[in-house]
């Protein structure tokens, strides 16, 4: 299905080009419909109707302040109490933007990793295990196993397996970020949201993190905000371009980078923006 439309904004015509993923192997697992986000009276997201394909990586790109974080944080209701989010967020047929949704349960299905690594002031082991314990997993063997698998999936196990009882605050930035990923996947989410997870990391850690994400995609649906065009190109199947609170273009990553339909997108991905 191909949808290309021109939307009128404050008198001027602004071209938008939206192609939602259609791939039988990777059905849509999450989508937003008529999503609007307001900070007080100020509208930060005007239009953000995107659909996300299962077990794929979708990149959200766009200039600073275009609303990428705002959009991403709305997906697992991290904007509750901060912003007003209207519209529907459909997750496996359920609108999770309803007030009667169990937000805490939902956030365990839709996990999040932040821009700055935020390990807790606990041991490496407890960073991963304590949320599980809180939800009733008390069996030591089971916990050990989950800690080990999550750390392996996050490609951190080999570096920390002898230091599990050491404080997580002593980890390097890249390791800490990987611990945060391990922590997020330990609760067995379905979708993983990442907001510029590599922006505080050096190139080596960044490339390790990308490898990790490519590996994780086999089990999780990943939505990642990034400022790094190469990164989006390397790891994502789909890319959405945000500008001033709107998704101006959404398509497969290769289309966005080789054949963008909207002038601003083209300027942005080629680095001629602004």
């Amino acid at each position: 299905m191909f949808v290309s439309n021109d939307v009128s904004t404050t008198g001027t015509m602004q071209k938008r080009h939206i192609v939602q993923p259609r791939d039988a192997q990777h059905p849509i697992v999450l989508s937003t419909e008529e999503l609007h986000v307001f900070y007080g009276k100020k509208e930060a997201i005007y239009e953000g109707d995107l659909q996300f394909a299962r077990n794929q990586i979708t990149a959200l790109i766009g200039p600073s302040g275009s609303g990428k974080s705002t959009y991403l944080r709305s997906l697992n209701r991290m904007n509750d109490r901060i912003a007003t989010v209207t519209g529907r967020i459909m997750y496996r047929g359920v609108d999770i933007n309803q007030s009667d949704i169990d937000v805490y349960e939902m956030r365990r299905r839709v996990g999040m990793v932040f821009q700055r690594p935020n390990p807790f002031a606990k041991s490496i082991y407890d960073n991963i295990a304590f949320a599980l314990r809180l939800r009733g997993t008390t069996d030591q063997h089971e916990l050990d196993e989950i800690v080990e698998t999550s750390l392996k999936q996050a490609a951190l196990w080999n570096q920390v397996k002898d230091d599990l009882n050491k404080s997580a605050l002593a980890l390097s930035g890249g390791q800490a970020q990987r611990l945060c990923i391990a922590r997020a996947i330990a609760v067995k989410p379905d979708i993983l949201l990442l907001d510029e997870p590599a922006s505080a990391l050096d190139p080596v850690s960044t490339s390790q993190l990308e490898d990790t994400l490519l590996e994780l995609k086999k089990q999780y649906t990943i939505i990642i905000v990034t400022h790094n065009m190469q990164q989006a190109g390397r790891i994502s199947e789909y890319t959405a371009f945000f500008n001033q609170g709107r998704v101006l273009e959404y398509d497969t990553t290769s289309h966005i980078f080789t054949n963008p339909q909207v002038q601003i997108t083209s300027d942005y991905v080629s680095g001629n923006f602004g």
Binding site: G111, F114, N118, F120, L134, C180
Partner: peptide, 13 residues
Amino acid sequence: DLSQREGGLALGL
């Protein structure tokens, strides 16, 4: 840091 609180909430706490 605020990020610690967000980290907790994001885990479903």
